[in-house]
């Protein structure tokens, strides 16, 4: 599994398309049905999956691990979302915390972790 992260609009999806063998139409959004996520070559906006799972009261880390066990070669793209002010709303805090925890798990399990800033990739773990 490859994990690509970075802030919003930093060129993450473009980087994935240019460096892996899939087309834009083969990329699923994190908000897609679970069946789609289990077979997708790439999942972007993975934070949407984390938010939906968290809203339903389940553990996002466990749910994400379930995807990885069935789809071990997936490329996961998730926004870095912990950089701002802690949200006032409790539900927003929970979702943001879940994204951080899920990101740590993904980075730990990934062979390669890449972070994009201004469209420039930095390999944080492994090799491209």
């Amino acid at each position: 599994m490859t994990f690509i992260t970075g802030g919003a609009y930093q060129g993450k999806t473009e980087f994935a398309i240019n460096n892996f063998e899939f087309f834009e139409r083969e990329i699923a959004d994190g908000s897609a049905e679970i069946e789609i996520l289990l077979s997708a070559k790439c999942i972007r906006n993975f934070e949407n999956f984390v938010y939906a799972v968290t809203e339903s009261g389940r553990n996002a880390v466990t749910a994400a691990e379930a995807i990885l066990s069935q789809n071990p070669d997936v490329v996961i793209i998730m926004n870095e979302v912990g950089g701002g002010i802690i949200p006032l709303e409790r539900s927003e805090r929970k979702k943001r915390e879940a994204a951080g925890q899920t990101g740590c798990m993904l980075a730990e399990k990934a062979e390669t972790v890449v972070r994009l800033v201004c469209g420039i990739p930095t390999v944080l773990k492994g090799k491209l």
């Binding site: 970075g6 802030g7 919003a8 609009y9 930093q10 060129g11 934070e47 926004n79 870095e80 979302v81 912990g82 950089g83 701002g84 002010i85 949200p87 927003e92 979702k95 943001r96 994204a99 800033v117 201004c118 469209g119």
Partner: peptide, 25 residues
Amino acid sequence: QVGSDGVKYSPETMAYIKQMGLLNN
């Protein structure tokens, strides 16, 4: 860097975050 935040802002602010990202790239 203005796009590393999990909170959804007003549509104007989200548009600004997008333009800043594209501009920086």
